[in-house]
Amino acid sequence: MATTKWAVDPTHSEIGFKVKHMMFTNVSGKFQQFEAAIETEGDNFENAKISFSGAIDSVTTGNADRDTHLLSPDFFDAAQYPTITFTGDTFKKISEGDYELTGTLGLHGAEKPVTLAVEFGGLAKDPWGNTKAGFTITGKINRKDWGLNWNAALETGGVLVSEEVRLNIELQFVKQ
């Protein structure tokens, strides 16, 4: 069977994350510049080869001061580590429409394995005849596993920024 290549449609995709702030509210952010690709056997995504890279300096949370802090050595250290990467190792079907994606997340000079839940939205043709595939990817990582250790203690106990980062990713791919 022929290999099929899929390219991300960035105008219909979002790489998002949420982190608890002061232990009781979530702050959301996203990467605005990224690339992703998938290689499959035909239109079957099981065992697909998946790759992703994003520009750290494209992170936005809707607050310029917070974004500047995130890019500093306290967090992402964008000057030294300008890219976040992911390479998928396995993409296996769990049940109809549900998959498990395991791969390596490269961030802040470290590479660590992660497992993410994937909901396959299906295939469809857009009005221009392009075949599209949609995916919702979720998971949790501990930012300290990648050396993102900065924090501040709160007077009431607890810390300013949670160690747990929730990933909320919506990806639409175009068959090449």
Rank of each mutant, 00 (worst) to 15 (best):
K5H: 10
W6K: 01
A7K: 09
V8T: 02
D9G: 03
E14S: 14
F17D: 05
K18V: 06
K18L: 08
V19E: 03
V19I: 15
H21A: 05
T25S: 15
N26V: 00
N26I: 00
V27H: 03
G29D: 11
F31D: 02
F31G: 03
F31A: 01
Q33G: 01
Q33M: 01
Q33K: 14
E35H: 09
A36Q: 03
E41K: 09
N44P: 00
K49D: 07
I50S: 05
A55V: 10
A55T: 12
A55M: 06
I56S: 10
T60E: 15
R66Y: 04
T68N: 14
L70I: 07
L71F: 04
P73G: 09
D74K: 05
F76Y: 02
D77V: 12
A78P: 11
P82W: 07
I84L: 15
I84G: 04
T85M: 04
G88C: 13
G88L: 12
T90Q: 13
F91R: 07
K93F: 01
K93P: 04
I94G: 01
I94L: 13
S95T: 12
D98H: 14
T102L: 08
T102R: 14
G103N: 08
T104R: 11
L105T: 11
L105Q: 09
G106V: 10
E111G: 15
E111D: 15
V114K: 07
T115P: 06
L116F: 12
V118H: 05
V118P: 04
V118E: 07
G122T: 05
A124E: 01
K125T: 06
W128E: 09
N130I: 03
N130W: 00
F135T: 02
F135H: 01
T136C: 02
G139I: 13
I141L: 15
K144L: 09
G147N: 02
G147S: 05
N149L: 10
N149K: 12
W150D: 06
A153D: 15
G157A: 10
G158T: 12
V159E: 13
S162W: 06
E163D: 15
E164F: 00
L171G: 02
Q172Y: 04
